[in-house]
Computed example of a mutant assay.
Amino acid sequence: MKNLVRLLMLALLVSACNSTQKEEEKPTIELQMAMDSTVTEKQVNFKAIDSDEALIATALMAAPAESREGCKVIGINMAGEWVTFREGSNEFIVITDDPSKPGFNAACYHQDLEPFMARGRELRAQGKSGGEIFDIREAEVKSGQLEMGNPGSTLHIYYGSKTNYEPETNKVEDAIYRYVVYLPFATSESTGLPEVPISPDHPWIMNPGTHRAHIMISPKPESQDF
């Protein structure tokens, strides 16, 4: 009889301990409120890109971190004018997002690509289509009239569908990167790269055999597991 009583008492004690442990594992109301507040605060931290200063700050995110301070910054300001926001002291030129267009798209490229980029802007301003711009620049590069810099000149693109940014970091909400390495007239055979990506983040060559041949590199978003 005594053994039975001891077993019952032991079972009740184990049950009580398990119940206490489960209660301790549950977040308290105060902790849950704090967690919810943190999530809400993170969402509130994003604000609209609504000033020239914000245009510059977010566009510089396209450049390598160690080079941002010396980049030249150009683009369309909040008033809709094409301007030079600031002169640079290194080899990079940054183009800000166009605030009149949906989504976000900023770019950073090597200064040796400026004649090529500027020619594209000039032809677009004339109302030329994408195909016409390609053909005109193809002919001009082949003839030596248009320079594209040294093979291997780079273009960094920072883009996304949203136009909010986090002022503390200047990161644009959900924006991602893409990198381009220009190798005029390179081919799959001359580089060993495929003409289509083997996987989403695999480098490949686009427009092979033309003036606009370039290596495409699209890293996976930071939020995506490797």
Rank of each mutant, 00 (worst) to 15 (best):
L4S: 09
S129Y: 11
P197C: 06
P99D: 14
C17D: 04
W204A: 03
E25C: 08
V39E: 14
D225G: 05
A175G: 12
E41M: 13
E91W: 00
E173I: 07
G70M: 10
V5N: 05
P102Q: 05
I136A: 14
V172P: 10
T40E: 15
E189S: 13
Y109I: 01
I176Q: 15
W82R: 12
T191C: 04
Y182D: 01
N207D: 12
A59E: 05
L13N: 03
V73Q: 01
V94G: 01
L7S: 08
D201Q: 08
P115S: 06
K2R: 11
M35K: 11
I205P: 06
E195Q: 09
A11N: 09
E222P: 02
M35W: 08
N90T: 01
I157H: 00
L10N: 09
K101Q: 13
A63K: 07
E147G: 03
S153V: 04
A11W: 13
Q126F: 02
N150G: 01
E168T: 11
D174E: 15
L31T: 13
E25D: 14
G75Q: 04
P102A: 08
A62P: 05
S37V: 01
L183V: 12
K162A: 01
Q21C: 07
E87Q: 12
N77S: 03
V14G: 02
T210S: 15
A48V: 10
K220H: 09
A11L: 15
A62N: 08
V172L: 14
E69N: 03
I133L: 10
E41F: 08
S129E: 10
E140L: 05
L8H: 11
N105G: 01
I198S: 10
I217L: 12
G70N: 14
T154W: 00
L4P: 00
L60M: 10
M216L: 07
N170I: 10
S100N: 15
G103S: 09
F104M: 04
E147F: 07
M148T: 12
M35Q: 09
K22I: 08
I136D: 12
K128P: 05
G70I: 02
D52I: 05
K47S: 10
Q32V: 06
W204C: 05
G70E: 13
P221I: 06
G192S: 14
S100R: 15
P208G: 08
R121D: 04
G103W: 04
V172T: 09
M117E: 13
M1H: 10
C71K: 04
G192D: 14
K101G: 05
M35P: 00
I133D: 04
S188F: 08
R212T: 04
I198W: 00
R86I: 01
I93M: 07
I136Q: 11
R124W: 10
L4A: 10
E168D: 14
M148I: 07
M148C: 14
N77I: 08
A125S: 15
S218D: 12
M117H: 04
K101V: 14
R178S: 11
I29G: 00
E81P: 00
R119A: 03
C17Q: 10
T191I: 09
I76C: 03
A79F: 01
S223N: 11
M216C: 07
M216P: 01
P151H: 02
N170D: 15
Y159R: 03
A139V: 02
S188E: 15
V39K: 13
T40S: 15
R6D: 10
K22C: 08
F226A: 11
I74T: 10
T154D: 02
V172K: 06
K142R: 09
S129V: 09
R121Y: 05
T58S: 11
A118E: 13
A213H: 04
